[in-house]
């Protein structure tokens, strides 16, 4: 049985690498990524699961890293925005001006990347369903829709 009783060195698979760092069992994955590993792409917003700025992929699925313990990620593959290497959705956000202040952008891109991988045939209804998990205070929603449509094979 895996057990972590206090602050300990834990090992996570992140962006294709094994990363080790100290973590308290009660550290969220968001805190661990930013404060222990310096991966600051996942943004703290509401830290309550509402805004989606901290979205990362866990085993390919979007997850709000403020609502996951770092310890839970042991044995799973985590991908952060730093782990994407010029994938089409990143260029699409540039081409379609799908951001203004940019704070929500990593979370939106990770959610979009999850959708592209899991449902490349997504309809507009499915895109809407997924994107409603993220909030953009600059209201770039239309441009974000255009960005993801431009890279989905089904569109």
């Amino acid at each position: 049985m895996l057990q972590i009783l206090n602050e300990s060195l834990i090992e996570l698979h992140i962006n294709g690498e094994i990363r080790k760092a100290l973590a308290r069992p009660s550290d969220t994955l968001l805190f661990f990524l930013r404060e222990r590993l310096g991966l600051t792409g996942a943004k703290p917003g509401c830290e309550n699961g509402d805004c989606g700025a901290c979205t990362v992929l866990v085993d390919g699925w979007p997850v709000k890293s403020c609502l996951m313990l770092a310890a839970e990620a042991i044995g799973h593959e985590v991908t952060t925005i730093e782990g994407l290497d010029k994938v089409p959705i990143q260029q699409a956000f540039v081409d379609k001006f799908a951001f203004q202040c940019g704070y929500c952008t990593p979370g939106f891109i990770m959610n979009c990347q999850g959708l592209i991988n899991i449902h490349p045939d997504a309809s507009d209804e499915v895109i809407h369903e997924w994107l409603q998990s993220n909030i953009c205070r600059c209201t770039s929603y239309q441009e974000i829709m255009e960005a993801i449509r431009s890279v989905l094979p089904s569109q």
């Binding site: 049985m1 057990q3 972590i4 308290r24 009660s26 550290d27 313990l69 310890a71």
Partner: peptide, 21 residues
Amino acid sequence: MIPFDFEYYRPQSITNAADIF
């Protein structure tokens, strides 16, 4: 950030989970 500490356990069986509880 969670402002207090707790221990984390990940049992692999129901019996294990009930026992550790």
